[in-house]
Each structure stands twice: as C-alpha cells, then as structure tokens.
Design a protein around this nucleic acid. Structure first.
Length: 675
DNA sequence: AGACCCAGGTTTTTT
DNA sequence: ACCTGGGTCT
C-alpha cells in the first residue's frame, strides 16, 4: 500500500499510536502523507472511518484531501471520515451542544460585515466612545484576544506601558467594556462570529468534561494539516481532544509559517515534542518540485532564521538554471520587462502562459502587471482580493435566509429590513433598538412590540409589517418542508420584492444581468447542496454558505492553464509553477518595512522562502530602483535577502542603473512624476 | 437620499 | 497620491 513513498514518508504514513510531528519541507509531499496515512489506518484495521478526524485551514485543502482520500479508499468510506476545516468541525459540534452555553440551537454565524454592524451598534450605545474610535481597531483587538486564547470572561488586564500613546491608552481603557458589550450583543442576536466557533468549542469542553469525553471516544485519530498555522485556541482545542491518548498527527513546516500576524503561533510546531510526551518527529526533506539550484537558494536564505528546526531540502531533479535578477527603472518598466522576459522564456521552453506566476508582497503591486499583460495580450488571472465574497446580492439573500432561520439575528435583519425600500429608516430602527435595550428583548421581539403598540410612523409600521409578513410566511414554508429549498429561495427572492427592486435600481442592462447571475448563484448553490445530501435543511445550507460562500461561476471558469497568475506570496502558499517571477525584491517591500523589527523579520524571510519554493524550474527576481510609495516616487534599495542567496547562484541583468553615490555630488537626480 | 467634505490610512487573508 | 468611511449639508 505504501508504494512509491520515500523512507521518511513511509515512516510517517505507517505511524499508528501516539503524537507525531511531520516537519514537511516545501514540496515534500505532505498532502500525500496525510491522505495515505488515513488509508493506512483504515486498511490495517486500526480505525473505522468515523473515528478519524482530519483538520485543515481552508475549504480548498479539505476538498482536495477528501478527493484524494476517496481515490484511495473509495467514496463511501471517505465520506465517513470527518475531513474539514477547524471551523466546520467546531460548527458541527456546537450545532449539537451549544444550548449548554446559553445560546439557542438555531444560532447563526456572522460574517465580517455583520460583525461590523453589530459592533457599530454597540459603540452607538456607549457615550463618548463612538466619536473617538474606529470600530475596525476594536474588531481587530477583539479578534486577537479571542485568538490568543483568553476566555469570554473578558480580556486580562494588560500592564501599563510607558511607550503607550495617548490613543493607545484610551483603546486599552475601553476595550474590556466594549468586548463585553460586543459579546452580549452577539448573544442577544443568537449569533457567533468566526472566532467564537473555536473559542466556544474549547469552552464547552472545559466546562463539560463528559461532553469532551464523548468526542474523545468518537475520534481516535487526529490529523492536522498546516500545523504551523495553528493559533492558541486551535492548540487548546487539539490538546483537549487528543487527551491522554494523544493520537495526534500533525504536519507542517515551520519555515512556511507566514500568518503570525493573524495569531498563528510558530511555537506550536517548534515545541511539539516538549508539549506532547513521547512525541516523535519525521522530517521530509526530499523535494519533488524544484531544481537543486532553487533549493540551494531557499536553504541558504531560510538558514539565517533562528526560530526554526534545521532542515535541508534536496532534489533529484537536477541542477537547473540559475536564478535571474532583473533590475529595472520603476514599477512600470518592471512589469514591461516581465512581459518581455516571459515571452523570451516561453519561446525557449515551449510551455504555456499558465506556467507563469508573478508573486508580490502587496496587492497594490498587481496594477502595473495587469496593465502590461493586458497590453501585451497575455491572458492572466489576479487571485486574491475578496471581492466576490462581497457580492451584495448574495449576502442580501443569505441575510433573508438567516432571519428566517434565526429571527434574533439582528445584523441580518438590519441588512434587509429595508431592502427593497419599505420606508423603514434610521428613525424607526433607532426606536426599535431603544425598545430592545430598555426591555431587554431581541430585535425581532422589539419589532413586533413597536408594531403592536403603534409607536412607529405609519410608513415604517407598514414596511415592518410587510417584512415580518414575508419572513414568517417563508419560515413556515421552510419548516413544513413541502417545497424544495432552491424553489423556496426563488420564491422568496420574488415575494420579498427583492428581484423587482434589483431590476429597478440597475443602471445598465449589463449590471442587471450580473446581479441576476449573483441571485442565481445562490439558488444553484442550494441545488448543489440538496443533491449532495440526503436530508437537506435550511440551517445546514446556511452553515455551508457561511463557511464556504457560493463561488462566482464566471470566476471559477477563469481558472485555466492558459492564463498567467498574479497573486501575493501569501496566497501562493501551497501552489507551484514552472516559472516564478518575484516582483519588488526591495527593502521596504520585501522585507516589508512594517515588519522588520523583532520576530517580524524572520517571518518576512519565510515569506521570501515561500516565494522561492513555489518554482519548479526557474525563478526571476525583479527589482525597481524607484517605486511609488505612499503617493511619492522614491528611490529604493535592494532587498537584504538577495545578499543571502548563495554566491554565484544569481545572474544579474541590469536594465537600469542606480545613480552612483559620488562623494562630490550633492543631490541625486530624483525624478518626480506629475499626476 | 444623495452630494460633498474631511481625516486617516496605505501588508499579508480565512473562516 | 489616492481611496475609504463617516459625517454633514441640501
């Protein structure tokens, strides 16, 4: 069964009991190891499919793994393995158990923008806070408190710090109160934010050991992908679930830990053996992706980091071509040169546009490349941004569905109560909100009460009446289960007047087509969901969409191998391309100047390492001697990481020259661009 | 509701 | 230099 595995991979795959960390270098076949081990455990009678829990960070990774496991052990068995993201696992647990924590079973999951709405309301209610502070900063703080593993009892007192600015001190002062109010607002709306899914699961298990024990018994074998990306809460979750038995198999690469800024703690993987008694480790150092030249470069760079487990990648694929380093005048000529260079490589290699990726540190760098590629007629896709996440129509319909499933969901109500226009304005909403606060009832109840009491304007009362009418009509329809879910969704879109409103406000026919397609995406997602499951429910459909929003069909098609890819290094993790262009290899960008102090620099170096190791055949580094930063065009200096590459591995192609710092010259001939 | 204005920020992204 | 968000004015 363990055919075609190298000895280290085989050792990992055939490991059965006890904790094990697989330090899987870039391109060393880690997904294979995880999927094969699942198959190994099953085929050798160590476990039944339902006793295996495999956790990933992204849906994409989970789906890919599920496909591969299905290929190994068959579809039926694969479906019984719990293979999903941390969040989907926790959601599954909480759907069953959350009542113990004082939420109702029909709780909803709030997205980023819902959460912003909720926090804004909280700040509105607190005199003197709203004006002085931005909700965004509080959300970030709240998130990092949750991810750092503090419990909902409230953030710990942080010690005073002399270097605090006045604003910083103010934030610190208000944070505990806001945290608490935010949390009770979520509870009142019977909703959880993404972080809560993890935090509450940990809390549940802490408070109810008998519940934990049930899950420990159910899941005999735990496998975790990308372990270097786990944060404190995920660590606690795994610890509890693994229990004494500690059949915990984690795979990751400390050198690819690039999410420290959102709470990932590299120490989890570095300290695995001291955290779990009798833990073993396996190192995967054979790389199946890149040439030795690329790996030598990557090894040399990452070898400078202190916080790491020593590893040395090697390849059987041969030396390959040396790295090219092209120095250009500015970001425009960087992109133009990349186009020429791409054509040049293409002619010699006989590949296709899909073999190329341009990687950069920051999204704003994509612009010149898009312009140059378009002008040259090179098909490309820009990955990243999250715009399709934000499709208004999809979110609106989902908000309707959420109100139907969870009437208390205030953010969802606020989103659609006046969409289409029903004459419900700010005044009415504030009035309802006051009732909410004074009488301590949910937003849904407050709407009812104000309506019954006639304390609203005629216009608003009528609007709210209509809204509640359509929502409750559809609620009973969904509950009765006589019509299929996709059918009901279409009905709701029409009956609520949403479709008509959308047509009315569309300025061009094109816009209307686009928007209807977005509506269709929801119905299609529902159809797909219904086909994939035996007993479809609205709640489960909403859960699915909260954690994995329906994809834009037009965007999905564009993922073809005839297009070059432009993306950030962060989003390139896990991918590979024959030819990789790394753009903006300059101080300030790589490493980024916001992250050069303390441990940040090592993370920046890992980022550069990740970029290098995406390449199979060849890497080109691009540098511009002048670049627009914060509006001004400024001279740059070469990234310090270039000096860390092995002697002689880089071939410099100078297309532009920095003015030599002559001792006699007083001013460098810096050009200013006019707007 | 929509037009206009000012302040602040401007790294990376998933669920 | 430019965009966003929030506030105010009409």
């Amino acid at each position: 069964m363990s055919n075609n595995l190298n000895p280290e991979q085989n050792a990992a795959v055939t490991h059965v009991d006890g904790p094990l960390v697989v330090l899987a270098g870039a391109g060393s076949g880690k997904t294979r190891v995880i999927t094969q081990r699942i198959a190994y455990l099953l085929n050798n009678g160590h476990a039944k499919p339902g006793q295996i829990l495999a956790l990933t960070f992204t849906n994409k990774a989970a789906n890919e793994m599920r496909d591969r496991v299905a290929g190994l052990i068959g579809k039926d068995a694969a479906e019984k393995v719990f293979l999903g993201t941390f969040h989907s696992f926790c959601l599954r647990v909480l759907r069953r158990e959350i009542e113990r924590l004082g939420y109702r079973k029909n709780f909803s999951v709030s997205s980023e923008s819902d959460v912003r709405t909720i926090l804004r309301r909280v700040l509105d209610d607190m005199d003197g806070v709203k004006d002085a502070f931005s909700p965004k900063i509080f959300l970030e703080r709240i998130g990092s408190i949750k991810n750092s593993g503090e419990t909902a009892e409230g953030p710990e007192e942080e010690e005073e710090n002399d270097s605090d600015t006045e604003t910083e001190a103010k934030y610190r002062k208000w944070l505990p109160a806001i945290y608490e109010k935010y949390q009770s607002a979520l509870r009142a709306a019977n909703t959880l934010d993404f972080d809560d899914l993890l935090v509450l699961t940990v809390q549940l298990w802490q408070k109810y050991p008998e519940v934990l024990e049930r899950y420990q018994n159910r899941f005999q074998y735990l496998l975790v992908d990308e372990y270097q990306d786990t944060n404190a809460v995920q660590y606690r979750l795994l610890r509890s679930l693994a229990g004494e038995r500690a059949n915990l198999f984690v795979v990751g690469d400390d050198d690819q830990s690039i999410y420290g800024w959102r709470g990932a703690d590299i120490r989890n993987i570095l300290d695995f053996e001291s955290d779990f008694p009798n833990a073993q480790n396996v190192k995967l150092e054979q790389n199946y992706r890149s040439t030795q030249t690329i790996l030598d470069a990557a090894n040399a760079v990452i070898g400078r980091n202190k916080q790491r487990r020593p590893k040395k990648l090697w390849s059987a694929l041969g030396e390959g071509r040396s790295i090219d380093h092209i120095i250009t005048a500015d970001s425009e000529s960087e992109a133009d040169t990349a186009v020429e260079w791409l054509h040049h490589i293409l002619k010699r290699s006989g590949g296709s546009f899909g073999d190329f990726a341009v990687l950069y540190r920051s999204n704003i760098q994509s612009r010149p490349f898009e312009i140059a590629f378009r002008r040259a007629g090179i098909p490309y896709v820009v990955r990243g941004g999250q715009d399709f996440f934000e499709r208004t129509e999809v979110r609106d319909i989902m908000a309707y569905l959420r109100v139907i499933a969870n009437p208390a969901d205030e953010a969802a109500v606020l989103r659609v109560v006046n969409v289409p226009r029903r004459g419900v304005g700010d005044a009415a909403l504030h009035h309802i909100h006051d009732v909410c606060r004074e009488e301590r009832v949910s937003f849904a109840k407050a709407m009812r009460r104000t309506l019954d009491r006639g304390t609203l304007s005629t216009r608003a009362a009528q609007g709210i009446g209509e809204f509640l009418g359509v929502v409750s009509a559809y609620r009973s329809q969904f509950e009765s289960g006589t019509r299929a879910i996709p059918d009901l969704i279409t009905g709701l879109i029409d009956a609520s007047g949403y479709r008509a409103e959308l047509r009315r406000i569309s300025k061009t026919p094109g816009q209307w087509i686009q928007r209807s397609e977005n509506l269709d995406a929801v119905t299609q997602a529902a159809e797909q969901y219904c086909e994939s499951t035996r007993k479809p429910t609205l709640t489960e459909f909403i859960d699915l969409c909260s954690l994995e929003p329906p994809t834009d069909p037009r965007r999905a098609d564009k993922r073809d191998d005839r297009s070059a890819t432009l993306m950030t290094i962060h989003s390139a993790k896990g991918l590979e391309f024959p030819f990789v262009f790394i753009a903006g290899v300059e101080e300030g960008l790589m490493p980024h100047d916001k992250n050069v102090l303390g441990p940040g620099l090592e993370e920046e170096r890992r980022l550069f390492y990740v970029a290098l190791t995406r390449a199979r055949r060849h890497v080109t580094l691009f540098e511009a001697i002048e670049r627009d930063r914060h509006g001004r065009s400024r001279p740059t200096t070469t990234s310090r990481f270039i000096a860390e590459l092995p002697e002689g591995s880089v071939n410099v192609r100078q297309r532009a020259q920095r003015p030599q710092p002559e001792p006699s010259t007083d001013k460098p001939p810096g050009k200013k661009r006019t707007a």
